[in-house]
Design a binder for these strands. Structure first.
Lengths: 238, 238
DNA sequence: TGTACATCAGTGAACGCGCGTTCACTGATGTAC
DNA sequence: TGTACATCAGTGAACGCGCGTTCACTGATGTAC
């Protein structure tokens, strides 16, 4: 008897899959990505190792799914913040988005490292993760696309324009995220890359504990950097 | 018969130690830190695994030494650049130091990941590496210590002042790197942290290949960011 | 409602693998008389 | 200069370990008549 188009067995499957992922994340939280072991995950769940092969093709399959979930979580946090601040000034939106980025990462450091940490040279990351990574940064596009080009960013903006001209997929993505007529796609991309690099620098140093012995809080640095970016681009707002 | 106060055996030892380290780095370059295996290193050198234990206490010992060497190399690159641009304007010095940081990292990505990549949760990094990490950033202090406090950085500067007051070792370090009377230590630290985060953000994204599919070169972004920092701090120069 | 059958979650044994590390040893190199 | 001895680089065997993954299987759950 199917309930809502899913059989009990299907629902059970999905639940166990979720529990496996959760146990795997706990493992990663405790010991890093390298410490993810199917046998250990199974043991923690009271199962034997081979049982997991009923739910995931192999270790890499599980890992890929965890990475996709993490991207989706980060993207949801960003999109939620964008929706919540839709009426705020661009300046406030930028600050809110930067803060959301950091708080998502600080709240789940192991997930941030899963996305932004050192990928093994046998680089996975097929087309699927590229789209997901873009989704995280997408909400920044309409905000920064309204700014003016600061001195020094001109060359970066030109390179972005060239990239837009060469790859229609990127142009579509930018248009989809920032459909307003007042947005310059190349400027939106250039500003987003600057913001991304600043955010990643701050957050990855914080998450790796490099600030812990220093006498400052990363949030202060982030505030300063987002304000500086808003200033240099002339973003209006309080 | 000792030559220059070292016996032939000592010289041989040092040479083999160096070859082991080089082979280990090659291994890391090819497969990441996780791929560093004593047995594989030995095999590559035409030795058996246990032979390496004559030269290093264990795997961690070797790894720690590689990390220290990498820090020293980066610090030397920065110090050399500072010495070479001692007559340039602060603005030019900042640009030169930022470029040196990036070029060192791009020239040896595996070393950069060794320093800045995800540390395993069983965090090594005792006091020795903290000093070495500081040595990399030290040359930035005298340059940025001459700048004015940009709007938004005031709070960060205050936190740095507090850190200076609480930890004399840090104050000594800053004074040692920037002994000029015209330098404000708290401002030097605040500016250096901003520069560090920006550099790390750009360089780590580039080194991890996250820019490769995008239509821009990291050097352009770095130029823009260093110029923006110099602008906001009112650094004099061409 | 009851029975026969199919599905499928999970087990236990086994595979080959490479890892770090120890240990007793051999044989060459260097040292002291 | 020659001989006895100490030092020490490197070997080969062995240790226990945990890994990912396969396979044939058992037994419970769900399905069809």
């Amino acid at each position: 008897m199917a309930v809502g188009n899913t059989t009990p067995r299907q629902r059970y499957r999905e639940q166990v899959r979720g529990e496996i992922k959760q146990a795997a994340l706990e493992q990663i939280r405790a010991g890093g990505i390298a410490a993810l072991s199917l046998n250990a995950v199974a043991k923690q769940m009271g199962l034997t190792g081979p049982a997991l092969y009923k739910y995931f093709k192999n270790r890499d399959d599980l890992l890929t799914e965890l990475i996709c979930d993490a991207y989706d979580g980060a993207a949801a946090a960003m999109r939620g913040t964008a929706a919540r601040t839709v009426d705020a000034s661009p300046r406030e939106q930028l600050h809110a988005l930067g803060t959301a980025y950091r708080e998502w990462a600080v709240g789940a450091p192991h997930l941030y490292l899963l996305l932004a940490g050192t990928p093994s040279p046998s680089c996975e990351a097929p087309a699927e993760t590229v789209d997901r990574a873009r989704a995280v940064l997408g909400p920044l596009l309409p905000v920064l696309g309204r700014g003016q080009c600061p001195p020094g960013v001109g060359e970066l903006r030109e390179q972005m324009q060239q990239w837009l001209d060469e790859t229609p997929a990127v142009a579509d993505w930018v248009r989809g995220c920032a459909p307003d007529a007042g947005v310059d796609p190349a400027m939106a991309l250039a500003g987003t890359v600057v913001a991304w690099a600043r955010l990643h620098g701050i957050v990855s140093l914080e998450v790796q504990g490099q600030f812990s012995s220093m006498g400052h809080r990363a949030a202060t640095l982030l505030d300063a950097e987002m304000q500086a970016l808003a200033d240099s681009m002339g973003l209006p707002g309080a």
